[in-house]
Amino acid sequence: MKIQFKINGQAQTVDVDGKTPLLWVIRDLLGLKGTKFGCGKAACGACTIHVDGNAIRSCSYAVKFAEGKEITTIEGLSDGDNLHPVQQAWKEEIVPQCGYCQPGFMMATAAMIEKIPNPTDEDIDNNIINICRCGTYTRMRKAIHRAAEIKNNNA
């Protein structure tokens, strides 16, 4: 079936089985590899993207539900050369190690600080529920607070 949506600001039409996980459409049909496959069962969050501003796990989201919606991936998070506050904060805190799970965490964080502009540690614990095997959580927590600060200063 033909499905139309906007991804990182650009209109796209794809012709695939509507049950296809959005993850594989983004990665292999549209060639945006920043969104990662981790588990395929929405258990790790490596594939987190935004659909209409909400963080969703794209490995378990059928492409047909994206019809008419706006999708943002890590490639579309920054505004040209201006890093998104989350990416800026991640850079300042030198968060990534292997880096594989990081786009998912950054997307989850970007969605959270839109809804919760000044997240507490408890907000972070409750909302950032992805998995990082290298164990970058302490730097991530600092970066999340910093991202909120950068975003609020820019506003």
Partner: peptide, 11 residues
Amino acid sequence: LMPKILGEPIF
């Protein structure tokens, strides 16, 4: 650092 923050296809 930057390729990992920008989600570049490095894997």
